[in-house]
């Protein structure tokens, strides 16, 4: 299998303000969000980054999407370096996270065309793809409604479709089902499986075990910015369910199992 995305010893620290130091009762001036993270994703698979809140999943994905820069280490996305060729990396990926919003003033239809132009998609090709995707997600019913007037689910669908206007081979998805009702969440996860069947590579971050079990081919478990386990789902869950595997690893890493309930 071909490696299409690779990270090598990614590190990222954030500075703590005096206020944050006080809040967290620490004298450390920095906090390590990603600590020597190395993993690979193969073409045509869904790779899941599993970890509690604050483990560094989103930070990792933001480095991959070139929104932020790693302090050290490197990531190669379909042959392009996130540190040296961020523009090329951005043209190869579809990135979706809840912090990326669509402008309230415009309609999904206008925004789709706008981002298609930014990606230099041939207008005819874009038109056919738009029709297909809009029908698939039922966006055609609210294609001309301003984003401001859409429900959360509608917005998420529009965001999803717009993030893949350029038919990218790699899709990076931060917490794909967060804040969605069960129906919309199902539409999204089905679509991810669909994309994999088309040969696309999908990286998702989540803290939902069932999502990883149902969807992912391989997964990495991140705790405190470190990769604790990284294997196929088959191997990870060979002896016990993923949830138990995670809690054992967490207890072994953090050493305070009783805290788990509070962190997850």
């Amino acid at each position: 299998m071909k490696v299409i995305l690779k990270t090598e010893n990614l590190c990222k620290t954030f500075k703590l303000s005096a206020k944050q130091q006080k809040l967290q009762n620490t004298k450390k001036k920095t906090i390590t969000a990603v600590d020597n993270l190395t993993f690979e994703a193969y073409e045509g698979e869904i790779y899941g980054l599993l970890g509690p809140n604050g483990a560094g999943k989103t930070t990792t994905l933001r480095i991959l999407a070139t929104l932020i820069k790693a302090d050290s280490g490197e990531a190669i996305v379909d042959g392009a370096s996130v540190t040296k060729e961020p523009d090329i990396v951005r043209s190869k990926i579809g990135f979706l996270t809840s912090e990326l919003k669509l402008e309230d003033f415009f309609t999904p239809n206008y925004l789709y065309d706008f981002f298609a132009k930014i990606h230099h998609i041939d207008p005819e090709v874009s038109k056919v793809r738009k029709k297909e995707l809009f029908e698939k997600f039922g966006i055609d019913e609210f294609a001309e409604v301003k984003v401001a007037n859409l429900s959360t689910g509608m917005k998420q669908k529009a965001s999803l479709v717009i993030s893949i206007v350029h038919n990218p081979n790699i899709i990076i998805f931060d917490e794909p089902t967060n804040g969605l009702d069960v129906l919309t969440a199902r539409v999204v996860t089905d679509f991810l499986a669909d994309l994999r069947n088309q040969g696309k590579t999908i990286i998702v971050s989540t803290h939902i075990f069932s999502l990883v079990e149902r969807l992912c081919d391989r997964a990495g478990i991140i705790i405190d910015g470190k990769m604790i386990a990284n294997d196929t789902l088959e191997n990870l869950t060979a002896e016990k369910p993923l949830e138990d595997v995670f809690f054992d690893l967490y207890a072994a890493t953090v050493g305070e199992a009783e805290k788990i309930g509070g962190t997850l």
Binding site: R90, L100, K101, I118
Partner: peptide
């Protein structure tokens, strides 16, 4: 503020 600039920043725009 509204997070729409970030959407532009992850596009291949320079």
């Amino acid at each position: 503020e509204r997070g729409t600039l970030a959407t532009l920043l992850v596009s291949p725009l320079k």
